[in-house]
């Protein structure tokens, strides 16, 4: 594949992933509302019609695989093109973020794998699979309560408690890892969000500074939004902290 073909793949797969992380962060911020919010939201996502959940997952998986495979090809070719470095080697102006994309990317990959085992498949804490709680009907935008109340089975997976316990002080190292990973996401995107416009040829000197600044703002917002959750969990200061179930008195689901 040509050099520019690979750049286009990086940009398009990067754009898909950026779109996902923005939506994911907005969804996660429901941790600061009543537990019904995130629990009803999670229920709704799990029960999307037409297998939409799997379609989205496959698109994301394809984007991640394309992004990583292409990144590896780029890194290999770029090493080959510059086998010998300079004895005096200091950048003229390149940012730290732009020079460390491959390293921030690799740690993000490790994070993505851990994150899926942590909260999606719950292999890290199998006991999280038994956390259930009834929706209380505080009124969310997700409409799951009315739907479930009518069937009389309104116990849903207690994602709220799962996340709060997962980030609680006893697992401080996990919260720390999340915050560090989000710091790397900030670095990766502070370069990447502007870079992808250059890669597909939609940038000029007027738009370059605007896009660089916009990338910085989005990357900071993502860092603050994402990192606030493990931090709040670690410090035990979620607004509905007292509604977190202990893992020791978990309620079994009303219907198996």
């Amino acid at each position: 594949m040509t050099s520019l073909g690979k750049k286009y793949i990086m940009a398009v797969s990067g754009l898909i992933l950026v779109g996902f992380v923005i939506g994911h962060m907005a969804g996660n911020l429901q941790m600061f509302l009543h537990p019904d919010w995130i629990n009803a939201y999670a229920y709704k996502l799990q029960n999307l019609p037409y297998g939409l959940l799997w379609i989205v997952r496959l698109v994301l998986l394809a984007a991640v695989v394309a992004h990583i495979v292409t990144a590896m090809l780029l890194v290999i070719e770029n090493r080959r093109a510059r086998p010998q470095g300079y004895s005096v080697d200091k950048p003229i102006q390149a940012t730290f973020a732009s020079r460390t994309m491959r390293y921030s990317g690799v740690i993000l990959l490790a994070f993505i794998v851990f994150h899926i085992l942590h909260f999606t498949t719950q292999h890290v804490h199998p006991e999280f699979r038994d956390l259930y709680r009834p929706l209380e009907g505080v009124g969310t935008i997700h409409g799951a309560y009315d739907l479930l109340e009518a069937t009389g089975k309104n116990h849903v997976h207690d994602v709220y408690s799962m996340v709060a316990i997962g980030f609680s002080a006893q697992y401080w190292y996990i919260s720390l890892f999340y915050v560090i990973a989000m710091g790397l996401l900030f670095l990766h995107l502070s370069h990447g969000i502007s870079s992808m416009f250059q890669s597909v040829g939609l940038r000029n000197h007027t738009w370059r500074i605007r896009l660089d600044r916009a990338a910085l703002v989005i990357a900071i917002a993502l860092f603050v939004g994402f990192a606030s959750i493990p931090v709040a969990g670690l410090l035990g200061i979620l607004p509905y902290q007292d509604m977190v179930q202990g893992v020791h008195h978990m309620h079994p689901p009303t219907t198996p």
Binding site: V200, G201, L202, H205
Partner: peptide, 30 residues
């Protein structure tokens, strides 16, 4: 090698050739 949009070329170029021309090439090629 492949451009990673870090801009060292533009900074080193004695004629101040702009990264804009890389973007134009990327667009024309697409």
């Amino acid at each position: 090698g492949n451009c990673t949009n870090i801009g060292e070329c533009e900074a080193a170029c004695p004629k101040g050739i702009s990264l804009d021309f890389i973007a134009m090439m990327n667009r024309d090629y697409a």
